[in-house]
Amino acid sequence: MLQVESRDGASHVALQGELTIYQAAELAERFLPLLRREEGLVIDLSDVSDMDSSCAQMLMLARRHCQARGHGCALVNHSQPVIDVFETLGLVSWFGDPVVLPGESGPKNRPGMDAGMGGGA
């Protein structure tokens, strides 16, 4: 559900798997105490496979709590399911963390035209 690592004066939390109302109580038990550490929080969301409003709400609480105490609280590496939920709930702008939005195509596919001109046929 989550992995915590403390370095550079901040807690690095990687949330994992399904985070829904069924996990909310357990997540709260393990996650909320981190808020009392009085240090910055970096929450990695890359391995979150599902999230619902209850757990999104918990992240809101974390952000507000940290901010009120002058600590940073950054959400990073949003997984696609997280982005979907954030977009639906209007949380992308509420949090304001940089999010990689889908839809941008990758680097332009250019024909190979370096000096080596491969054999024709």
Partner: peptide
């Protein structure tokens, strides 16, 4: 959204 102390993770 209440403060941490009053927060219930299963309430909306």
């Amino acid at each position: 959204l209440p403060d941490l102390a009053d927060y219930d993770p299963e309430s909306c």
